[in-house]
Each structure stands twice: as C-alpha cells, then as structure tokens.
Computed example of a mutant assay.
Amino acid sequence: MRAVPRPAILGSIAAVLFLACVAPEDRGTDATNLRDPWAIRAEPGDPALAAGKEIFASCASCHLADAGGRSDGTIPRLAGQRAEILEWRLRGLQDGSIDLPVMTPFARALTEAEIRQVSAYLASLPRPERIGSASGGVNERGAKLYHDRCRSCHSAEADAVAASNAPRLCGQHEAYLLRRLEDMASGNAGGAGAARAVDPAMEAIAIALSMEDRLRVSRYLARSECD
C-alpha cells in the first residue's frame, strides 16, 4: 500500500460520522446480515490493535492521542465509536456509496485489513473521562426534543443503532454536534456530494429545529453518558 497522509484518512471518517443514517438496504445489505457492530474483533494484546494504533499515530496531532477530538467542534470524538460504524464509513468512501471525492483516494489506499485494524483500535479506546464538552446545565427541552425526534433512529441512549448505521452520539462534543446540525439545516452537510451520506429525513429534522433547539439537543447529547 502506498503511503498516504493518515490525518486525511481519519478526517474522512469525521466528515461523514455524525448522523449519517443511511439504511443498510441503500448499500445492498440486509440488516439481518450485519455483523454485531458492538463486538470489537480484537482482544487486548492482539496484533490487530497494535497495527491500528500505528495507523492512528500520525492522526493524533489533529484527533489527539486519546482520539477524544476537540471541544471547539472542529474534530469529533472517535474514541469508543463502534468499530462497525467506522468500517462502514471507510468502505462507503471506497465503493462510492459515500460521495466525498476529496477523501476517496485516501480511503481507497487502505486495505481491508487496515480498515478493520484502525476501526478496532479506535473502538477499543476508553472514552476520555470527560464527557463531551458542553456549556450550561442539563436541559429538559433538549432531552425531550431528542427523544421525540431522534431516538427512533439513534436509540434512547444515543449509543448507536446497527440497523440504520447510526453512530454513537452520546458524549460527543457540543460544538461538533451543533455544527453538523447547522450544516444539515443549511444544506452544507460536508461539502460537495455529501448529501448521499446523509438521510434526507435527518436533514428535514435539522431544518425543522430552531437554532436554539439545535443547541439544546447538542448540549443534551454532549452531556449524555453512553453506559
């Protein structure tokens, strides 16, 4: 495999990670045939995790050593994200079902083994002790909005859903969640071609939320415990 900038590879994951709920059938995959997305297919000490750590090492300058992302919203948290979700995004970039041309060459440079390795490594990382950075206190309005409008795809705990390939949102940074909601509401969810990676229903929900309610939902999720 030729050498490629590793930060760009993980950036491709970040670009399509949040709320990219594309049903499995959109990629020709029956939901009943999905592997268990909660299973990390590597045990502590497994060479696959060591290989994944090596792949990720050059990404730490942006994603931080603990893959915890940045509280200013520029970089999402990847630590503890479900391995299957990360693999699915990278494969989507490879086969074109997720259309982000600037990132496709980097994803296609990864072998299948490397996709599994870096995804398993990130999934194996403990979530940083801090909950996703958020301002203000717990807000009941944000909780109600989430449970009324989002839980059917993202689960009551916002802890990822296999059938819709919905990523884990609990504990993600408030500023990142808010930015992604605002991008979807404005039709700019990731740049050229990114609409194929976002469920139109998700865009409709983002548009229907007021600016204040997008902030409330983001704050609620950022302060949510995953376990």
Rank of each mutant, 00 (worst) to 15 (best):
G136M: 03
A160Y: 13
E140K: 09
C153L: 04
S152M: 12
S124Q: 09
S155W: 00
A143C: 04
E87T: 05
E140I: 00
R151I: 07
R108M: 09
I98T: 06
R116I: 08
E157H: 13
G137P: 10
G132V: 13
I85S: 04
G96A: 07
L90H: 02
R130D: 12
D99T: 03
D95A: 02
S119V: 06
R127S: 07
G92W: 01
A163S: 14
T104V: 14
L145P: 03
I85M: 11
P126H: 06
N139F: 00
V138I: 11
L90E: 01
Y146Q: 04
V118I: 15
S97T: 10
E114C: 07
C153E: 07
G132N: 04
L90S: 02
S124F: 04
K144G: 11
E87N: 03
Q94W: 09
A160H: 14
S155T: 15
P126D: 15
A160K: 07
S97Q: 08
G136V: 05
G132D: 04
V138R: 13
E140Y: 01
A156G: 13
A156R: 13
R116D: 15
V102S: 11
P126V: 11
R91K: 14
E157L: 12
S97D: 00
A123Q: 10
S119E: 08
R168H: 00
A143M: 02
S119P: 01
R141M: 01
H147D: 08
R91W: 01
D159H: 10
P167L: 02
A158S: 14
L169Q: 08
D148N: 08
A134Q: 11
A143W: 05
L100I: 13
A113D: 14
K144W: 00
A107S: 12
E114W: 10
S133P: 05
C150T: 07
P167D: 01
D159P: 04
P167M: 06
P128W: 05
P167Y: 04
C150F: 06
T104I: 12
Q117N: 14
I85L: 05
C153V: 02
R168A: 01
S164H: 07
A123S: 08
S124G: 10
S133N: 13
A166M: 04
R168P: 03
D148H: 02
C153T: 14
V161Y: 00
R151V: 09
R168F: 00
L90Q: 05
Y146F: 15
A113L: 07
A113C: 03
V102C: 05
C150E: 03
S119G: 12
G171Q: 00
C150I: 09
S152H: 10
N139Y: 08
Y121A: 02
R151A: 15
